[in-house]
């Protein structure tokens, strides 16, 4: 297991992609699974695309019910609209439209701030 931290307080200083690059240089990799924040999964997919390494990402699109009922979590995969809750959450990272997903993740940014402040943490 390789740990990375942004500030270097533990493991490698840097991003997940820095650790991935080390592994890719060291050994032959045939499958990559990325689970975490959208920018990380996007960066991993971009890195492996050029190398033709099968890559799956586990998408955390905004969901309401999580049962296929509302469609809030729709993502574009290979040009088709999919529901992350029902068709996913794991998709081929090379086919995911990360640009659309990134923007959809910010749909409630203002309200999230209000809700957070309202919790008086």
């Amino acid at each position: 297991m390789l740990i990375t931290t942004n500030d270097g307080s533990a493991g490698l200083k840097g991003f997940v992609t820095d650790a991935l690059l080390k592994v890719l240089e060291r050994e032959k990799v045939i499958y990559v699974l990325a689970v975490g924040p959208v920018p990380m999964m996007k960066a991993v997919s971009e890195m492996t695309r050029a190398l033709h390494i099968a890559t799956y990402v586990s998408l955390n699109a905004i969901m309401v019910d999580g049962t296929g009922m509302c469609g809030a979590c729709r993502v574009t995969v290979g040009g088709e609209t999919k529901f992350a809750c029902f068709h996913g959450p794991d998709f081929d990272g090379h086919k995911v439209d990360f640009e659309n997903l990134t923007k959809r993740q910010k749909m409630f940014a203002k309200q999230e701030k209000i809700a957070f402040d309202n919790m008086h943490l």
Partner: peptide, 28 residues
Amino acid sequence: GLPRLLNVPGSNANGVYSANEYLTRIYL
């Protein structure tokens, strides 16, 4: 309960809901 959606440019834009999502957010 699986909503049908239009497949036109902008269908997945922010602020575009299925009726189920809109009503669920409000009533449930």
